[in-house]
Amino acid sequence: MNYWLVKSEPFKYSWDDFVKQGVGTWDGVRNYQARNNLASMKLDDLVLFYHSNEGLEVVGIAKIVKEAYPDPTTDDNRWVVVDLVPVEKLPNPVTLKAIKADERLKDIALIRLSRLSVQQLKKDEFDIILSKAYGN
Protein backbone atom coordinates (compact mmCIF):
# COMPACT_ATOMS: atom_id res chain seq x y z
CA MET A 1 0.00 0.00 0.00
CA ASN A 2 1.09 3.54 -0.75
CA TYR A 3 0.20 6.76 1.02
CA TRP A 4 -0.57 10.14 -0.50
CA LEU A 5 -1.63 13.69 0.22
CA VAL A 6 -3.85 15.72 -2.09
CA LYS A 7 -4.43 19.43 -1.75
CA SER A 8 -7.61 21.30 -2.51
CA GLU A 9 -8.68 24.87 -1.93
CA PRO A 10 -11.76 24.56 0.28
CA PHE A 11 -13.59 27.41 -1.43
CA LYS A 12 -13.36 25.41 -4.70
CA TYR A 13 -13.67 21.82 -3.42
CA SER A 14 -13.77 21.20 0.32
CA TRP A 15 -13.81 18.02 2.37
CA ASP A 16 -17.55 18.59 2.91
CA ASP A 17 -18.08 18.92 -0.86
CA PHE A 18 -16.17 15.66 -1.33
CA VAL A 19 -18.26 13.86 1.30
CA LYS A 20 -21.51 15.09 -0.32
CA GLN A 21 -20.29 13.93 -3.72
CA GLY A 22 -19.36 10.47 -2.39
CA VAL A 23 -16.87 9.63 -5.14
CA GLY A 24 -14.47 12.33 -6.23
CA THR A 25 -12.56 12.41 -9.49
CA TRP A 26 -9.21 14.11 -8.94
CA ASP A 27 -9.07 16.02 -12.21
CA GLY A 28 -7.56 19.17 -13.63
CA VAL A 29 -3.98 18.39 -12.52
CA ARG A 30 -1.56 20.05 -14.93
CA ASN A 31 1.78 19.48 -13.24
CA TYR A 32 3.91 16.58 -14.50
CA GLN A 33 5.14 15.47 -11.07
CA ALA A 34 1.60 15.54 -9.67
CA ARG A 35 0.38 13.67 -12.76
CA ASN A 36 3.06 11.02 -12.26
CA ASN A 37 1.94 10.64 -8.66
CA LEU A 38 -1.68 10.18 -9.78
CA ALA A 39 -0.53 7.56 -12.26
CA SER A 40 1.27 5.71 -9.44
CA MET A 41 -1.76 5.48 -7.19
CA LYS A 42 -3.15 2.00 -6.69
CA LEU A 43 -6.54 0.67 -5.64
CA ASP A 44 -7.09 1.07 -1.87
CA ASP A 45 -4.09 3.39 -1.36
CA LEU A 46 -4.83 5.85 1.44
CA VAL A 47 -4.86 9.60 0.87
CA LEU A 48 -4.78 12.54 3.26
CA PHE A 49 -7.04 15.40 2.17
CA TYR A 50 -5.44 18.80 2.79
CA HIS A 51 -7.17 22.18 2.67
CA SER A 52 -4.76 24.62 1.00
CA ASN A 53 -4.88 28.43 0.95
CA GLU A 54 -7.65 28.52 3.59
CA GLY A 55 -7.25 26.42 6.70
CA LEU A 56 -3.86 24.96 5.78
CA GLU A 57 -4.66 21.65 7.44
CA VAL A 58 -5.14 17.95 6.85
CA VAL A 59 -8.85 17.33 7.41
CA GLY A 60 -9.63 13.78 6.28
CA ILE A 61 -8.66 10.38 4.96
CA ALA A 62 -9.71 9.11 1.54
CA LYS A 63 -9.10 5.91 -0.42
CA ILE A 64 -8.39 5.27 -4.09
CA VAL A 65 -11.26 3.36 -5.73
CA LYS A 66 -10.24 3.71 -9.38
CA GLU A 67 -6.71 3.87 -10.70
CA ALA A 68 -5.46 6.36 -13.28
CA TYR A 69 -7.47 6.92 -16.45
CA PRO A 70 -7.57 9.77 -19.00
CA ASP A 71 -8.65 13.14 -17.60
CA PRO A 72 -12.14 13.85 -19.00
CA THR A 73 -11.63 17.61 -18.62
CA THR A 74 -9.15 17.74 -21.51
CA ASP A 75 -8.50 16.19 -24.91
CA ASP A 76 -4.77 16.10 -24.10
CA ASN A 77 -3.97 12.44 -23.36
CA ARG A 78 -0.95 13.33 -21.18
CA TRP A 79 -3.21 14.01 -18.18
CA VAL A 80 -4.84 11.43 -15.90
CA VAL A 81 -7.27 11.31 -13.00
CA VAL A 82 -8.09 8.89 -10.19
CA ASP A 83 -11.30 8.35 -8.28
CA LEU A 84 -11.34 8.42 -4.50
CA VAL A 85 -13.91 8.14 -1.73
CA PRO A 86 -13.94 9.71 1.71
CA VAL A 87 -13.10 7.32 4.51
CA GLU A 88 -13.11 9.49 7.60
CA LYS A 89 -13.05 13.10 8.72
CA LEU A 90 -10.19 13.62 11.16
CA PRO A 91 -11.34 14.36 14.72
CA ASN A 92 -8.69 17.08 14.98
CA PRO A 93 -7.40 18.71 11.78
CA VAL A 94 -3.60 18.73 11.59
CA THR A 95 -2.32 22.17 10.70
CA LEU A 96 0.64 23.00 8.51
CA LYS A 97 2.11 24.75 11.55
CA ALA A 98 1.94 21.50 13.56
CA ILE A 99 3.50 19.57 10.69
CA LYS A 100 6.34 22.08 10.35
CA ALA A 101 6.94 21.98 14.11
CA ASP A 102 7.51 18.21 14.11
CA GLU A 103 11.15 17.38 13.36
CA ARG A 104 10.12 13.91 12.13
CA LEU A 105 8.23 15.58 9.26
CA LYS A 106 10.98 17.99 8.16
CA ASP A 107 11.42 16.21 4.79
CA ILE A 108 7.73 15.82 3.96
CA ALA A 109 6.78 17.03 0.48
CA LEU A 110 4.17 19.36 1.96
CA ILE A 111 7.06 21.46 3.28
CA ARG A 112 9.73 20.81 0.63
CA LEU A 113 7.44 21.00 -2.43
CA SER A 114 4.72 23.25 -1.10
CA ARG A 115 3.09 23.95 -4.48
CA LEU A 116 2.76 20.28 -5.51
CA SER A 117 -0.92 19.30 -5.33
CA VAL A 118 -0.49 15.50 -5.27
CA GLN A 119 2.28 14.19 -3.05
CA GLN A 120 3.51 10.79 -1.97
CA LEU A 121 3.98 10.19 1.76
CA LYS A 122 6.07 7.63 3.56
CA LYS A 123 4.09 5.34 5.84
CA ASP A 124 5.69 6.85 8.94
CA GLU A 125 4.80 10.38 7.76
CA PHE A 126 1.20 9.29 7.23
CA ASP A 127 1.14 7.63 10.68
CA ILE A 128 2.65 10.67 12.44
CA ILE A 129 0.02 12.97 10.95
CA LEU A 130 -2.76 10.59 11.96
CA SER A 131 -1.37 10.34 15.50
CA LYS A 132 -1.62 14.14 15.73
CA ALA A 133 -5.22 14.01 14.51
CA TYR A 134 -6.15 11.45 17.15
CA GLY A 135 -4.17 13.11 19.95
CA ASN A 136 -1.67 10.29 20.39
Rank of each mutant, 00 (worst) to 15 (best):
E103A: 12
N53D: 11
V87S: 04
N92D: 05
R104H: 04
D45R: 10
N77E: 14
K106P: 12
T73H: 12
V65E: 03
L96W: 05
A98I: 03
D75Q: 13
I111T: 01
Y50K: 08
S52Y: 02
E88G: 04
D71T: 10
D45H: 11
M41K: 09
Y50V: 02
R104F: 02
V59H: 05
L105I: 01
L105N: 06
I61M: 00
P70K: 12
D102Y: 07
V59L: 00
N53G: 03
R78H: 11
I111Y: 00
E67R: 08
V94Y: 09
D107Q: 12
E57Y: 02
P72Y: 08
S114M: 14
I108W: 02
N92G: 08
V47R: 03
P93M: 07
P86Y: 06
A62N: 06
W79C: 02
D44E: 10
N92R: 15
L105M: 00
F49D: 05
R104E: 05
E88D: 09
N53F: 09
S114V: 11
I61S: 02
K42H: 12
D83Q: 15
G60R: 03
E67A: 01
D44A: 09
A101L: 06
M41Y: 07
V87G: 04
K89Q: 14
R78W: 10
P72W: 09
E103G: 11
P86M: 07
V82D: 06
L113W: 09
N53Q: 13
L105C: 00
L84T: 07
G60V: 01
T74I: 04
T73P: 15
W79V: 09
I108R: 09
G60K: 09
D107V: 07
K106S: 11
T74C: 02
P93S: 01
V65R: 08
N92M: 00
V81K: 01
A109Y: 12
P72G: 09
D102F: 10
S114T: 15
W79E: 00
V82K: 06
A98G: 05
A62V: 10
V59A: 03
L46Q: 12
S114R: 15
E57F: 02
N92H: 15
K106H: 07
P91W: 09
V94H: 04
V87L: 10
I61G: 01
D107R: 14
S52T: 06
N92I: 02
V82W: 07
A98V: 08
P91C: 09
P91Q: 05
T74Y: 01
T74E: 01
P93V: 03
S114G: 15
L43G: 03
F49V: 12
V80S: 14
E54F: 14
K100W: 04
L84Q: 07
L48C: 02
R104C: 07
P86I: 10
D44C: 09
L84V: 12
K42R: 14
L84W: 14
T73Y: 11
L46R: 14
